[in-house]
Design a protein around this nucleic acid. Sequence first.
DNA 1: TTGTACGCGTTATCAG
DNA 2: CTGATAACGCGTACAA
Lengths: 337, 337
Amino acid sequence: MAATLRDVADRAQVSVRTVSNVVSGYEHVSEKMRQRVQRAIDELGYIPNPVARTLRTGKTGLLSLVVPEIDVPYFSQLAREVIDAAGHLGFQVMIDQTGHDHERERQLLRGGGRRNLFDGMLFASLATRDELRDVNPARSSPLILLGEHLFDRRFDHVAIDNVVAAHDATSHLLDRGRTRIAAIGAQPKESYATPLQRTEGFRKALRERGLGPVNALQRTAAHYGRADGYAAATSLLRKSPRPDAMFCYSDLLAMGAIRAVFDAGLRVPEDVAIIGIDDIEEGRYSRPSLSTVSLDTPFIARTAVSRLAARIEDPSLAAEEFIAPHTLIARESTENR
Amino acid sequence: MAATLRDVADRAQVSVRTVSNVVSGYEHVSEKMRQRVQRAIDELGYIPNPVARTLRTGKTGLLSLVVPEIDVPYFSQLAREVIDAAGHLGFQVMIDQTGHDHERERQLLRGGGRRNLFDGMLFASLATRDELRDVNPARSSPLILLGEHLFDRRFDHVAIDNVVAAHDATSHLLDRGRTRIAAIGAQPKESYATPLQRTEGFRKALRERGLGPVNALQRTAAHYGRADGYAAATSLLRKSPRPDAMFCYSDLLAMGAIRAVFDAGLRVPEDVAIIGIDDIEEGRYSRPSLSTVSLDTPFIARTAVSRLAARIEDPSLAAEEFIAPHTLIARESTENR
DNA sequence: TTGTACGCGTTATCAG
DNA sequence: CTGATAACGCGTACAA
């Protein structure tokens, strides 16, 4: 059915080598030869078979992006940037979801069960220290960690400074005159880096202003979704005296929290100020619009993809860490009363 | 470096044929043999090379999902379901974005420039009649169209009944006593099926209640995003008398419209009722929560993936059309005044 | 039930 | 600059 390199060679009366040269744009081919071959290619409608090429070269041109759930706005935004950045470098992207399942994460880190169909992997899902420890950087396929995993320095790693980001968000609430500040997003089992660091930044900011321990005003959230934020905020509002501000570890948590405040008959920001982290577009249109810490997703995506490409070229590269910039964005949800 | 089938065969003192049988779970292998081979496999840490297997079998186990932008909630939710459904059938999913670029759509429909690295494609982006006409179903790789393209019956097609959905949404607004109903989402150039059908359903519902032509209350929207909804709604509110309801062709348009109404100093639903289509999670937490037409995304994803799998098995299948169910969901944004 | 040998479509090596 | 030919790793018809 489909024409092969050999078919073209036969038709053009040349060797497959010559055809291959023309197809892959090899320099030293006479113009005459090139035209003759090109004509045969066009006549037969020949298209190179990427699988055969891959078998020979060992490169598929495929990257794998692993996220917990692609329909979480932060991750779909990241995916968008990653796919674009990868495209510019000639890669296509396949997506895997872990669904917060540890076993699945472990499995994907080992290369998806089978030997990889991809040249490298961007891992943006959670992973505990233990799961990473099982992975041997020297033997596994090229891997870049995104946003987490500060524990393990054997891997390339693109992230933000979570301690500072959380500190900035909390300080912003303090600057607005809030004093009973709650935090939503610590993990039930503290095994991940990001929530730990955000909690650290949160507490640090409070300490700097002479505010004591705040365990009673902290709430865990398993999945950083709207429902988690809603539940946590509802629980916090039952306390007396109730908090006058909430720092949410993700914008999605914040969206849930905002709704919870209103369902409790209170107002944002008048009664409770709310700030998140991520800067998803949703927060720019919500009522009130959401104050947040904006992460430079394009930077993260570009850095991760180009670093992965470099590591595919040279797997012996020493592991490096890249910190993406973040900016505090004040919107309506933390305005002064 | 990596062990091959032949390495295992040498080590187990058997032929490659036998090893291959064991690996691919062939029935008729003696238990003794199986164990001997399995031991060699484990010792060498052998993993089959999917590329070589693909070259031989012609199947990559990869599906391509094409969307306009993955970070649009409707599409990321669809992607989530598609990836899950594909996983159950042993497929992985790569994602391509068209970014509303016609040339790119055309290119992807032709198989991404190169011959396909995937077994089949789910096309959920827009495409005009012309773009599809260039594609020959018999020669291209297996293709399923999602949600659009009712023009062309040469392809498998999974969609909802857009005319009825739009009719339901509009009727809901009429049932709530609204009389000056606007519509946001027609296309500047009417080349796509979905907006045309929604406009048809919209007008049909108005006609049934004896309401005349409404061109003055229709607004186009190029990309169905929040910004488009905001701009269109703002423009509509300047009319006098102003509309008392807006039917948005997507939930995202509706989110932008809600914000626009409030920025204009008016209230939803008291002054303007708003309804969308899609049922994205965002609309369940927004203020007011968003009335909408819920599409059965899991059904769409499962149907599309299993149909694609079937078509990969048997490319000669006759094209078929699948209609996914939809349900009207009334929330706060269309409550009675 | 198992072994041998060939082909899948490329790229790379080595002559010429 | 171009031709012949050997890999790449696996599946399978054919033979035993």
